[in-house]
């Protein structure tokens, strides 16, 4: 029993990468939920994007190698989307900062009543 567990622990397979990327995703989600500064929230979103890419590449290598490198292509698309997202997000943050002189998410309450 112990031998099997040690073997599972020491031979790196798909599960290790999935747990790594899942944990990284939830750390990013924690930053999104628990931080006050809106730039910290944006950083959490970036961490979530990267962890999803690890998932795509790991699945491509271990379970879908006959599909060539489709996972890699989709990871590149996700990276391009993340770059576009951070540009627009920072533009919004700077535009709001000019009116409210604050980066606290609690102050962004125009749509709340």
């Amino acid at each position: 029993m112990i031998d099997i567990l040690m073997d599972k622990f020491l031979t790196i397979g798909l599960e290790h990468f999935l747990i790594l990327s899942g944990t990284l995703f939830f750390i990013g989600l924690f930053a999104v939920l628990a931080k006050k500064n809106v730039i910290a929230v944006l950083m959490g979103i970036e961490i979530m994007f990267t962890s999803v890419n690890i998932n795509l590449v790991a699945f491509n290598k271990y379970t879908a190698a006959e599909a060539l490198l489709t996972g890699h292509v989709f990871a590149i698309f996700v990276i391009a989307l993340a770059a576009a997202e951070v540009a627009v997000g920072l533009a919004l943050i700077i535009s709001i900062y000019r009116q409210r002189t604050s980066t606290d998410v609690q102050d962004f309450d125009w749509l709340k009543w």
């Binding site: 730039i39 770059a83 951070v86 540009a87 700077i94 900062y97």
Partner: peptide, 17 residues
């Protein structure tokens, strides 16, 4: 992209605000 561009973007945003 991430370590180069996005981190620099975020640091710009931090310094502006």
């Amino acid at each position: 992209v991430y370590a180069g561009a996005i981190t620099i973007f975020i640091v710009f945003g931090i310094m502006f605000t």
